[in-house]
Design a protein around this nucleic acid. Structure first.
Lengths: 259, 259
DNA sequence: CGTAGTGTTGAATTGAATCAAGTGTCGTGG
DNA sequence: CCACGACACTTGATTCAATTCAACACTACG
């Protein structure tokens, strides 16, 4: 089973070194339009025609870049917008009554964050940048209005939300019946295919989150995450160097999950 | 252990539920309209005016009742409709590669099931009746069309999906950081408030699912579920008699969660 | 350069799983 | 209507995977 989060299209990416992009406009550049954005076929504009994309463009606010540790929004903030990640990555988390944080998700370029606030009109978690990052802010009331005019957009946004629901159910399964090693293997494969999706190397990437973040997300302690990483490395399946992960044997990593 | 959802069959319903209903039309009655449905203020019609409800009525198909064990849909079936539970209850589950089932959700009257299929155009889980039950089937393409005409409906369906996403994230937190006892306490309180929502006794109700189902849902074994139930009973917090649960002390049950 | 945050590794502990009887309940068919 | 068999549930003994506790190493950054 693949992990939530990717429409599974194992696209092979360039073999550039970690984090290096092709020589396109700076990914943080706020002046790019939806039409020219390199994520347009992953993000909201998918399935829209030129004129529709232009209308979408009108309501999208391209915010200034966020620094590592900057919050996009906080738990209980009034809900106004959803955000399309443009560059960098984010984590969402909630604070338990004991002050402990629980990570509820990681978000990469082309993914939509903030949909948990739609129903209650307040965000139910906080979302913070894990590295330099930028987003497109999409005011939800305007998105609704525009969706009402553009059936394609309405259809696509229903699909995005449906995908989020399906993904969450996969995580439910993951947490309720997978071992620690299976969870980590699943997590790495999920990250890999999400990197592939944005044309970054699927076999060598940086973990911008800490071991503790991964543990909270997967329902494990940070010590267990660390031990599993070194275990997988000893087996020759992956290579771990601090925050850099290289997947050496995809097949064996996949085999762990379908045990 | 039973595989969730064998096609088996034809078992007739057990005694009527603990909470007694007011003497309204039979809840399985297929001839009721949205306007006259006693769930109208929980279900899709909320926030619609009379004429809008009438239009919704036109696309809703009131299917014949399902018997315990009947499937509403199965994993990989092409997605066509979402379903509003009208009476009875359902469970959704996926089959692991080992043939083991994992329960992904339980659904009660007024709740919407089937949204996991929206994105991929195929249901990602199977859904089966836990007792005599009936549903309103809402063909999704028609719901989309109508949503496009009725901004209120579009808004409300976005909210329903957003609510599902927020709910799934809470389960994520539950599974990733709560102990067995906390999970069970949380589960019982969730059921309780969902019974209250449909005007059934919140302190005394039947568990239509098995201990094994609950275990799969909460990431526990059926033995652990059973032990926790008897443990809570010994503490005087709940009363367990086979499938019947009575909550004696809500406060202490709530206190378990915020430990 | 020092400090705080992050990560690794080891040893001891433990919560829940597993293994194993045994009882209770219900629907079916004799 | 009763008896049988399948399934559901309980309870106990044992095991084990992951947590907890603890010490230390690395890295990054002002």
């Amino acid at each position: 089973m693949t992990m939530p989060g990717q429409p599974t299209g194992i696209r092979v990416a360039n073999q550039e070194s970690v984090g290096v992009r092709s020589p396109r406009p700076c990914p943080h550049n706020p002046s790019i339009s939806c039409a020219s954005c390199r994520l347009s076929e992953l993000c909201l504009p998918i399935a829209l025609n030129k004129s529709e994309i232009h209308q979408l463009d009108e309501i999208v606010q391209r915010n200034r870049p966020l620094k590592k540790g900057d919050h996009l929004y906080r738990q209980n903030d009034p809900f106004r917008s959803v955000f399309a990640v443009r560059s960098g990555s984010f984590k969402s988390y909630v604070l338990g009554q004991d002050g402990q944080g629980r990570v509820t998700g990681f978000f990469m370029p082309g993914e939509i964050v903030g949909m948990d606030g739609i129903a209650s009109k307040a965000y139910s978690n906080s979302t913070v940048a894990l590295e330099h990052a930028s987003v497109c802010e999409i005011p939800f009331s305007q998105l609704e209005k525009l969706s009402h005019q553009l059936p394609n957009l309405q259809h696509h946004f229903f699909a995005i939300m449906g995908n989020e629901i399906a993904k969450d159910q996969q995580i439910h399964t993951l947490l309720s019946s997978y071992s620690a090693e299976e969870r980590i293997a699943s997590f790495l494969l999920s990250l890999s295919s999400r990197y592939a999706r944005v044309s970054l190397a699927p076999d060598k990437f940086l973990l911008h989150m800490t071991r503790g973040d991964i543990g909270e997300y997967l329902g494990l302690t940070l010590e267990t995450v660390s031990r599993i990483f070194t275990g997988l490395q000893k087996k020759g399946i992956i290579l771990v160097k601090n925050k850099e992960i290289e997947i050496l044997e995809f097949d064996r990593l996949k085999a762990i999950i379908s045990s």
